[in-house]
Simulated assay, not measured.
Amino acid sequence: MRKLKYLDYWLLVPYLVLSIFGIVMVYSASADIGSQNGGSPLSYLIKQTIYVIMGLCILSFMTMMNINKLRNKNVLKYAGYAALGSLALLLVMGQTINGAAGWFHLGPISIQPAEFVKFYVIIWLANVIANRQDEIQLEGWWATMRWPLIICLGIVGLILLQPDLGGATINASIIFVMVLASGFNWKGAMLVFGGAFLSVVGILFPIVVKVSEMGFAKNNYQLQRIVAFINPFEHSQSVGQQLVNSYYALSNGGVFGVGWGNSIQKTGYLPEPNTDFIMAILAEELGLITALGIIALLFLIIIRTVLIGIRSNSAYQSLICYGTATYLTVQTLFNLGGVLGMLPITGVTFPFISYGGSSTWTLALVMGVVLNIGTRQKRYRLTH
């Protein structure tokens, strides 16, 4: 109980508020889906409540544990085998949802390994970089880090093969930021990665436009999403349906919303209202002000996580914080970008609010570790 006074409530309270708010919004967004599928309107509510309760147990365990146990060689080795093995196995027997074979179906729930891999990449890469600080200084970054980087690229490649562009990009972003924090030449990295990105976009965009005009994207779910992003209203009855109805939801909601439970778009017009597009339903029912409040709470968590990383004297702990902040930031931007039509839809959930066990538990894992680090810092400040 003595540890409770050292908890970082700037992290814990927003986490709890967002998780509880997520349960409320999952129920509102999914009640019609449950009824339409011949089930109970409470089915998603019950599942999400269980996911959040289990997440709180995970959060508590990770907060109270000795963080150095995560650096154990055997723990990291077998977790790595599990991560790579599950991603490889998905290519053979993964359950396909929304065009990506990224799930294992286990009874009433579906597990998405790419979510848990985010946590593994953060703790494994932080440990590798922290252990090799002296080698990086003496032998150079590339000579020291080339094999870990190749393993990281292999992980991203396996996710991309599902194909899960959103998951691959988030994991790649985590790796990129942690690599920069390890002492890599950031100017060179930004030049190389920025040039590569602009080149790919410059080549890909005209090709996709041409492909959409010729109708070749009909059988490719990933291409359909890009086609919908380019011109959603031209494809409003097919691949552009999600984005068009997301616009309608945002327009209906205005500043103050139409009232909780009163969304029109969730009644069959907007697919995935409880996962990818839950923020569109939230904005329709509770308005722009509430949506901005939710985003502000999430960015409070992100800013606090970065501050904890900056204050830490441990390279390992700082890298975990930077990786976690990157994970939350990129996932939030990808989800909001898809909802607002500023980015192609990638199937990325909104942290803490969207329905899903894998995402809820992964968030609990990373937040538990960051709370652990913040608790250690606060205890040290108060006792020294």
Rank of each mutant, 00 (worst) to 15 (best):
6 Y>E: 10
9 Y>C: 03
19 S>A: 10
23 I>S: 01
24 V>G: 02
28 S>F: 08
30 S>L: 05
35 S>E: 12
36 Q>A: 15
37 N>G: 13
37 N>Y: 14
38 G>I: 08
41 P>N: 14
44 Y>L: 07
44 Y>G: 05
46 I>V: 10
48 Q>N: 04
48 Q>W: 01
58 I>V: 14
58 I>Q: 00
61 F>A: 15
66 N>C: 07
68 N>H: 14
101 A>G: 09
102 G>E: 12
106 L>A: 03
110 S>G: 03
111 I>R: 11
114 A>G: 08
118 K>N: 04
119 F>L: 07
120 Y>V: 00
120 Y>L: 02
124 W>Y: 11
128 V>Q: 12
129 I>D: 00
134 D>M: 13
142 W>C: 07
143 A>D: 13
153 L>F: 13
154 G>H: 11
157 G>Y: 06
158 L>F: 14
160 L>Y: 12
168 A>H: 05
169 T>E: 07
175 I>E: 05
185 N>K: 15
193 F>D: 01
202 G>F: 03
212 S>C: 15
213 E>I: 12
223 L>C: 05
243 L>D: 04
250 L>W: 11
259 G>W: 11
266 K>P: 01
286 L>S: 14
286 L>A: 15
291 A>S: 15
298 L>P: 10
304 R>Q: 06
309 G>L: 05
312 S>F: 09
315 A>G: 06
316 Y>C: 09
318 S>R: 14
319 L>W: 00
323 G>N: 07
331 Q>G: 08
333 L>Q: 05
338 G>Y: 00
340 L>T: 13
340 L>C: 10
349 T>Q: 10
350 F>K: 03
350 F>E: 05
356 G>C: 06
359 S>E: 01
361 W>E: 00
367 M>T: 10
368 G>C: 07
381 R>A: 15
381 R>D: 10
